[in-house]
């Protein structure tokens, strides 16, 4: 029962606060309720009114009415504080899984000042900020990421309790643009690339290198091709040969290099390797199933690789109808959606 109600409420809220990278707040989407202190204040006013009635004290009446009227005035003030404010996602952040990912917003006040605005998303929040009328400022909200891929906060809450903290007016922005979360780097075991430079025949190289094979006991995850089956037949010991030829080209970071590791772990290894290469500023390429990034170096390249690792195999969030910069959601999105 409660669940049904909650879903219904969520749908209703979602209609009022559609997914959009830019949200301006007005009567349609601002909610306002007394805070806990506001409720106690109401009780206090009631007690004062009763005191005034019982002691027939006009001045207590007067104080009660004054405070009551101020409470109503504060309601408008609190509402106005938020209304007219516009929040625009400037840059959905990037970061490693498990880190707090910065979401940058441009907050611009409308006609009046917006004072003591708090942004929060789940348990992360931004210190209250103030914007004078007609001004704008940039705010960064850190959103905690759990795993790699696209991170799109369901709802980012924007709230104000100014002036008295007796009332809270709040609304949400539901950004469209997702943040990209890179895999959490995990120190990779020494391994090479399976990508060949192409000037040598790999098969030939492998056979040649047979002599230099490094023999070691079998570990879980080793490919069966590499097991020395003859030796196994003879001695019953599983021994694996690591051929020199398999060290591969250190320029390439290869998805397939980590035999036996599962995909996520591979991506984490690769992320570590990317950072490792970035530190040495050595050129490297990235070989992912379905995506190959040619060797290069520099921060942009590093970023591109990390992004590729982050979103590998992930589907972008479905209802990503990002409004173009500066457009209101209604004008553009409805037109787009109409034919569908």
């Amino acid at each position: 029962m409660i669940k049904v109600f909650r879903e219904r409420w969520q749908r209703w809220v979602n209609r009022r606060v559609p997914r959009s990278d830019s949200q301006s707040f007005n009567q349609k989407n601002i909610f306002i309720l007394p805070t806990g202190a506001g409720v106690v204040f109401g009780i206090l006013l009631l007690v004062m009114l009763i005191t005034g009635i019982n002691y027939q004290n006009s001045l207590i009446y007067l104080t009660t009415f004054l405070l009551g009227a101020l409470f109503v005035g504060a309601m408008h003030q609190t509402h106005r504080n938020l209304s007219g404010l516009q929040l625009t996602v400037m840059q959905p952040g990037e970061g490693f899984a498990g880190d707090e990912v910065p979401y940058r917003f441009r907050a611009s006040a409308g006609q009046g000042p917006a004072i003591s605005i708090r942004l929060s998303c789940e348990d992360s929040r931004v210190a209250p900020f103030h914007i004078a009328a007609g001004q704008a400022m940039d705010v960064t909200l850190l959103v905690t990421s759990a795993h790699r891929g696209y991170l799109r906060p369901e709802m980012i809450r924007v709230e104000t309790r100014f002036p008295f903290g007796l009332l809270k007016a709040w609304s949400w922005i539901r950004p469209v643009s997702p943040a990209i979360i890179f895999p959490r780097p995990v120190v990779a075991p020494d391994s090479g690339s399976t990508v060949e430079d192409g000037d040598e025949d790999s098969a030939q190289r492998a056979t040649i290198g047979n002599d230099n094979a490094d023999l070691r006991p079998w570990r879980e995850g080793d490919l069966s091709q590499r097991v020395m089956w003859k030796r196994y037949a003879r001695t019953g010991q599983m021994v694996v040969a690591d051929w020199e030829g398999e060290q591969g080209n250190p320029q390439w970071l290869d998805f397939y290099a980590f035999a036996g590791a599962d995909n996520e772990l591979r991506l984490s290894y690769l992320a570590w390797q990317v950072l490792e290469r970035a530190r040495g500023n050595t050129p490297f390429g990235l070989n992912l199933p379905g995506q190959v990034i040619e060797p290069d170096h520099g921060p942009a390249h590093v970023n591109r690789c990390l992004r590729a690792l982050g979103v590998w195999g992930e589907v972008p969030p479905r209802d990503s109808v990002a409004a173009a910069h500066g457009t209101r959601w209604h004008e553009t999105v409805r037109e787009k959606e109409a034919p569908v």
């Binding site: 004072i115 003591s116 209250p128 103030h130 100014f162 002036p163 008295f164 903290g165």
Partner: peptide, 14 residues
């Protein structure tokens, strides 16, 4: 109360 709710209000605001 107003100061409590916005302790660092810049002086150019009312």
């Amino acid at each position: 109360l107003q100061v409590l709710n916005a302790p660092d209000l810049p002086s150019d605001m009312p």
